[in-house]
Design a protein around this nucleic acid. Structure first.
Lengths: 204, 204
DNA sequence: CGTTCGATATATCGGCTCGATATAGTCTGG
DNA sequence: CCAGACTATATCGAGCCGATATATCGAACG
């Protein structure tokens, strides 16, 4: 799943590891902060599989480093942001490749079988703009079915045993309420997607 | 954290791995199902550290197996439940030791520094009856402070950058709403705990 | 002027968890 | 009598996390 998040951020612009982590924490950081012990191995895997390419940027006080290696990718490396000009030390700037674009599409739409937990869904929904309208609705409906199933399971477990104390019960009630509201949210999203796709252009 | 859940269930009665997993899924299963690849190593760790003791129950069609080893613990092993008499194959029944009781108390109250994520809090709250009233309130307030901090962080990240598309924004709004409701729930719980502890014995 | 501190930046290690898989006994039903 | 489902324990690889190590830079401080 981390690969999907990395590729999604690199689709917008090339980034180095440290900045990538900050964006994972801030933009997609609704759920958790990613540690370096996950990030750098994931980047190494992606590089080994050819999904991303890395350019080593040597530290240099001049405006354009260009110490000379791999001329193609760093055209997109523009120091438009304020934190880029305060570069320090050598950095490895990663860019997504064509193969990485394909991998991103695969990972994003592969939730057909097991878009299991909440974080996985949240991550996919963050990149929902890269999905076809039909796939967006499918993602929402799969998530909805999972929450309904989860709700039924919790209710059956709660009714089969009344030995829960007040602490467990209050926790369970809060969780159930939150899940129901998630389902309502999904319903609203599904309705909005349906009207948008019917009102807009025919499916693609 | 898995150790804490195991010890909490074994505090009530001795259990073998398979049944333990079912209860982790049903009773504490509000969040996730625990895999055997986590459970059995965790049991082995607990046994190696002396927090639990295991009794090998050989399969036998008689009512009482009692194949003879460690006479003390299995007094609590009563086949009062329907699924116990349909025992099959040899099982390793785990019981909590005195050292395990101490470890449970340590783990349960060690959230002073880092009761980080939601699942950790939910697990501790499930066993809140084993905490002193003061410690219960502390747990709730730590969780509340974390959620407030999380909320502030998300809001600042959202305001600093407006480039989020409608999908990310709707997701973030739902997450924010849910977090606010969690905080309200915590406030209710804190109020209830305060009245309960003030109505009961004077604080100390 | 040095030096200490915090931010930037990459990398690795051990330990824990998961999903998949292997093994094997028991019970039920066709 | 055998197929399939359930019970039960165990292991493996891979991924993720927290902690830690290393190194450079700018700012703060005396």
């Amino acid at each position: 799943m981390l690969e999907l998040a990395i590729l999604g951020l690199l689709k917008e612009q090339p980034l180095h590891g440290y900045e990538l982590r900050k964006r994972l924490r801030d933009y997609l950081g609704l759920f958790a902060s990613v540690s370096f012990g996950s990030l750098y191995p994931a980047l190494a895997r992606l590089e080994a599989s050819g999904a991303v390419s890395a350019v080593e940027i040597q530290r240099s006080t001049a405006g354009f480093p260009m110490t000379g290696s791999l001329s193609g990718e760093r055209t997109a490396f523009r120091r438009s942001r304020a934190d880029v000009n305060r570069r320090s030390r050598s950095r490895r700037v990663y860019s997504i490749t064509d193969e990485g674009q394909r991998l991103f599409d695969d990972l994003l739409s592969s939730g057909t079988e097991s878009c299991d937990d909440e974080r996985s869904f949240a991550l996919r929904w963050t990149f929902a703009r890269h999905l076809r309208p039909q796939a967006r609705i499918g993602l929402l409906e799969r998530r909805r079915a999972q929450l309904l199933q989860h709700l039924a399971h919790v209710c059956s477990a709660a009714s089969s045993n009344e030995s829960l104390d007040s602490y467990s019960r209050s926790l369970m009630e809060r969780a159930t309420e939150s899940t129901k509201q998630d389902i309502s949210w999904l319903d609203r999203m599904i309705r909005a997607e349906r009207t948008a796709s019917s009102g807009g252009a025919s499916c693609d």
